[in-house]
Design a protein around this nucleic acid. Structure first.
Ligand code: SF4
Ligand code: SF4
Lengths: 134, 134
DNA sequence: CGAATCTAAAGCCATAATAGCCTCCTGATA
DNA sequence: TATCAGGAGGCTATTATGGCTTTAGATTCG
């Protein structure tokens, strides 16, 4: 799996939040989307920390978007939720990642890197706005 | 990770085998590529079962390619080694895979499916020949 | 021809990494 | 200050990876 469940939940939440006027708390989101509350909380926290969401504590608190939908790329969302950018394979992002340090002579690294590039640019260009307005 | 270590090992083995005249036994391959022997054996068996490799028992036995390099697609290799086709996400291959059975109204399924399609065709068209002759 | 030897085939087990989920603590608001 | 909701860490199930042993088929040599 290139994409984890955490990313799915993140995107579903963002979609819902994009059409909300006021901040929504994690419990409401959890109920609305049938997502385990505690798991979702951690995801939302990560999104808040990276600036995609803004969190409000205390009564009437919750989460709300902190950017325009067209400024939220799927790549950014996944990178932040999963802790690292989605990689097709361990060594795909950079030659240095190869454990045997033979990426320069490895026959399959070029193709891995090419595939990774395609995926990255796809995710980079795809924004929340694209998804919502379909 | 979309691609597992088993797939990496499979491809590395196939590259080596493509330039060999005679069958190579799993131990030689394991030593040559620094791959755990027992793990590699399992991978080679899977490849043999799906017709990519041909196995020879007894003395002077081993594994050899059973197809032209240009007829071996990476998609086929991965599918057979990993037991299933590499999926970008649980629900990406087909709408039916959605656990909540809401793929038809799900906002993000279309984009997942599109990404999956891109990856599939990339892997489908990439053959062992392409990799070897670089 | 027959036995010893070689190698794949198949099964089960152990460990490491990851994904997924839950509980309690901390801080802000009313 | 009482309450509401986010923050941080811990726990379990699943998967990926690798090890080990036994079985079975083929070859080679005496
Ligand atoms: S050997 Fe090649 S495929 Fe394997 S990790 Fe290194 S660069 Fe990647
Ligand atoms: S809800 Fe959408 S993204 Fe989630 S599994 Fe179903 S189709 Fe896929």
């Amino acid at each position: 799996m290139l994409i984890t469940r955490a990313s799915e939940y993140a995107i579903l939440s963002l979609i819902l939040l994009s059409s909300a006027k006021e901040p929504m708390d994690s419990e409401t989101l959890s109920r609305e989307l049938s997502i385990p509350k505690s798991f979702l909380a951690k995801i939302l926290q990560a999104l808040a920390k990276s600036g995609v969401l803004k969190s409000y504590k205390g009564a009437k608190g919750g989460f709300a978007l902190d950017k325009e939908t067209k400024d939220i790329s799927m790549l950014a969302v996944m990178s932040c939720v999963e802790g690292k950018a989605p990689a097709v394979f361990e060594c795909a992002p950079a030659e240095k990642s190869c454990p045997s340090e033979q990426a320069n002579i490895c026959s399959i690294w070029p193709f891995l890197h090419k595939l990774q590039g395609k995926i990255d640019s796809f995710l980079e260009e795809l924004t929340l706005a694209d998804i919502v307005e379909e």
